[in-house]
Design a protein around this nucleic acid. Structure first.
Length: 438
RNA sequence: UCCCCAGUAGCUCAGUUGGUUAGAGCAUUCGACUGUUAAUCGAAGGGUCGUAGGUUCAAGUCCUACCUGGGGAGCCA
């Protein structure tokens, strides 16, 4: 390097193009080495990008050249050299190496290879699998969606409220994780923040929650985790129709945001973005009765009164290029807190939102029952412990109010936008029935 | 909880109607190569065929049980 070059500096790979012609130092991990005798290549990654580095024997100090031979997959290194544009390099940019320091060696048995692996093996090595390009793309898109969620609600005047994770038995009916709680018997990991969200909506107007939820269901499907993240807005004075308008504006915002800012990551995942570009308002709205008629016409044995199964959902969605709302299910198929439909008291004012392309249900929402007597009657009908819901009933005693909200499953949404068949890849460390580590 | 499927080298898999010493690619180690793109070429090492029984002259292969995992149902997001 010529003496007028600036002194060495540390640079992230993503920033390299701004340092063309300068000598810089990158600290990163080796993903790949190739050698052809007197010229050799090491590909580095540092989380911000990937960069090819070039080692030329007769341009390097002998000890630096010999050090190259020690590089193995996932060795951590500091590489110094000149950054330059180079058409032959992946990504169009590379470094001509002048110095190499090995920071941490990596034994030759690094398990993840650039080839097909079985899912059991990959999940056992999840802590290392995360270093792969595709896994990085997924993590980036997930983070973009999380940020977009906060931005959407902030811009729309919502207050974020954090609801408890340790709760008394309350909420959904499905499996609870229990843990000892001092002298108070068992506490349960929260399955929803909704009931607390309703209390907060009466206090603050428009709120949302964003947090982990836990379901001890023995589910082994591509759509279930025992620990997943849920976003639950709750809006005072919204009815069911307003609730659905909020959902479609919200989902459309999230999809647009990823399309605008994370095209490179969608490309890494080979996502067909035309499928995302067609996600525009208004979404399709089907009454539950219409939905049953549609699936029956297509051969389903589902009868009026039963919940729609996974196959039914696929049959419904097949006809549309955008998400579908199925509204106003029979009371018996849905939770106790949903408001009775005044136009058909057999049903409740609720909706599911089904993602296109067969990705299934990503939202469940409803207008909440705001009539004290009807809510109490439903609690009795379901055989729920009334004393556990005394505070929840108070929300109807002290100034009851029309309100509605919904729960968005974060992993299902990310899986849909990424075009992934299984939600386990969409969270860094998935928790499933048969898997508690890493 | 129920139904279906799979366990053979570090990884991904092949292994015929049961028949000699268990096969490949990738990875690893050694060697060759001055522009490679999951480089290429040559060589080498690497196995209690998930576990335990059983049938048979003979079992990776057939039978039973169990273990582990996967896909799906139900439930839901």
């Amino acid at each position: 390097m010529s003496p007028e070059m600036p002194s060495d500096r540390f640079v992230r790979i993503a920033e390299l193009s701004a340092h063309a012609g300068q000598s810089v130092t990158v600290r990163a991990w080796v993903t790949h080495v190739r050698s052809s005798g007197k010229i050799a290549f090491a590909v580095l990654r540092d989380g911000t990008g990937v960069c090819q580095t070039v080692f030329v024997k007769n341009q390097l100090a002998p000890e630096v050249w010999e050090r190259f031979a020690e590089l193995t997959t996932e060795t951590s290194v500091a590489v110094t050299g000149g950054a330059r544009a180079e058409q032959r390099a992946p990504g169009g940019f590379e470094m001509g190496v002048t110095d190499l320091q090995i920071i941490g060696t990596s034994p030759a048995d690094y398990p993840i290879q650039p080839k097909e692996h079985g899912i059991d093996f990959l999940l056992d090595n999840r802590h290392l699998w995360l270093r792969s390009p595709k896994q990085r793309a997924i993590a980036v898109i997930r983070s973009e969606i999380e940020q977009a969620i906060h931005d959407f609600f902030y811009e729309h005047g919502f207050l974020r409220v954090d609801t408890p994770i340790l709760t008394a038995a309350i909420g959904e009916r499905s499996g609870l994780f229990a843990t000892e709680y001092f002298d108070l018997g068992n506490a349960y990991l929260a399955q929803t923040g909704q009931l607390y969200g309703e209390a907060a909506a009466a206090a603050f107007g428009k709120i949302y929650t964003f947090g982990p939820t836990f379901r001890a269901e023995k589910s082994k499907t591509r759509r279930h985790l025992t620990e997943f993240w849920m976003i639950e807005p709750e809006v005072a004075w919204n009815d069911s129709a307003a609730n659905m308008r909020l959902q479609e504006d919200f989902l459309t915002y999230l999809v647009q945001r990823v399309l605008e800012r994370r095209g490179a990551e969608l490309a890494e995942l080979e996502r067909d973005i035309t499928k995302l570009e067609s996600v525009t308002v208004p979404f399709v709205r089907l009454d539950y009765g219409e939905a049953v008629a549609i699936v029956q016409k297509k051969g389903s044995v589902t009868q009026w009164g039963e919940d729609l199964g996974a196959e039914d959902e696929a049959l419904i969605v097949a006809d549309y290029d955008r998400p579908v709302f199925v509204m106003n299910y029979p009371k018996g198929a849905k939770a106790f807190y949903m408001k009775e439909n005044p136009d058909d008291p057999r049903t409740v004012l609720c909706n599911d939102c089904l993602a296109p392309e067969g990705f299934g249900e990503i939202i469940g929402g409803s207008q909440r029952e705001d009539d004290y007597d009807k809510l109490l009657a439903r609690i009795h009908e379901e055989g729920l412990p009334v004393d556990a819901y005394d505070w929840y009933l108070d929300l109807r005693r002290y100034g009851t109010f029309t309100h509605a909200g919904f729960g968005l499953g974060l992993e299902r949404t990310v899986a849909w936008i990424c075009g992934l068949q299984h939600i386990r890849e969409v969270i860094a460390f998935p928790r499933m029935m048969h898997r508690l580590r890493p």
